[in-house]
Amino acid sequence: MNRWFTTADENAASGGMTGLVGAFSLEPTMNISPDSLVLWEWGPVRLNATILFTWLVMALLTIASWLITRRLSTSVTLSRGQAILETLVTVVQGQIRDAAQQEPGRYLTFIGTLFLFIATSNLLSIVPGFQPPTGSLSTTTALALCVFVTVPLFGIRQQGLRGYLRQYLQPSPIMLPFNIIGEISRTLALAVRLFGNVMSGTIIAGVLLTIVPLFFPVIMQVLGLVTGMIQAYIFAILTMVYIASATRAHQTSQAQQVRAQMRASDESNQKEQDHP
C-alpha cells in the first residue's frame, strides 16, 4: 500500500471506519506524505511531489548561492546576499566549533548543507502549495543514511580503521552489540524525529482547519516555522555531535594517558615526601 489515505470511494465500499474518517472530511486537505501525490507518470518512471520539491529546493539553493558568489567583493561595501551568506557561514562555523571543540573546516560543507536544505524546505512550507520534502519519510531516511555513512568515514579518516573499530569495544567487548544497536537506532531516531515533527505540523494544520478555521491555524503555522528551524538546527547539531564522538575518542584516550602520567608523577612525589 503506497497511499496513506484511502479515497472516499474505497471507504464507502469498505464501511466501518467510513463514518469516522468521513465525519471530519479530511481527505482533500490531508496528505500525510507528499510521496502519495503523483504528479506525472510514464511507465515505471514516477514523479511525485517529494522528488519535485526536493529538486526545487536544491535548485533554489544552488542558483541563489551561485548568483551571489558570482561577484564577491573584498571591499568595505558588501552586497546584501554576500552579507547573508557570510553571516550564515560564520554562524555555522561557530556552532560546529562549540559543539565539536574542533576546527570546522572539514565538517562545514556537510553540516552546512544539511542545515540549509532542511531549514529551507521547512521554511518554504509557509508557501501555499509547497509540500515540504522533509515531511516524507523517504527524504528524512535518505538524510539519516547520509549521516550513517559519513560518521564512520570521518572517524576512520581521523584515527584509522583499527582505531575507529576499537571504539566499538569500549568500555568492554561485552558492549559490542549495544554499540552497534545504538548506531542503528540513532539513525532511525534522526529520520523519524524530523519526519514526525514536520508531518505533525501538516496534520495539526489540517485538523485545525476543520475545527477552528478562522484564526488559530495561523498561530500554529508560525509555531510550525519555529519547529522547522529548531529541527533543522537539531539535525545538524546531532550530526556534528555524532561525528565529534567518532573522531574525538582518540583525543580522549590521549587525555587519559596524560592524566595517568600526571597521577603517577603525583604518587611518586608523595612517596618521596613520605620517605624523605
Binding site: 524525529r193 515533527n197 505533525s200 529548531i230 537539531i234 547539531i237 555531535v241
Partner: peptide, 20 residues
C-alpha cells in the same frame, strides 16, 4: 539554551514516535 534545545528535541522524539 543550545543544550536545552537539543535535549528537548531528544526528549520530544519519544512523543513523536508515539504520534507516528
Amino acid at each position: 539554551t543550545r543544550t536545552l534545545f537539543v535535549g528537548l528535541a531528544m526528549v520530544e522524539s519519544t512523543a513523536i514516535y508515539c504520534f507516528v
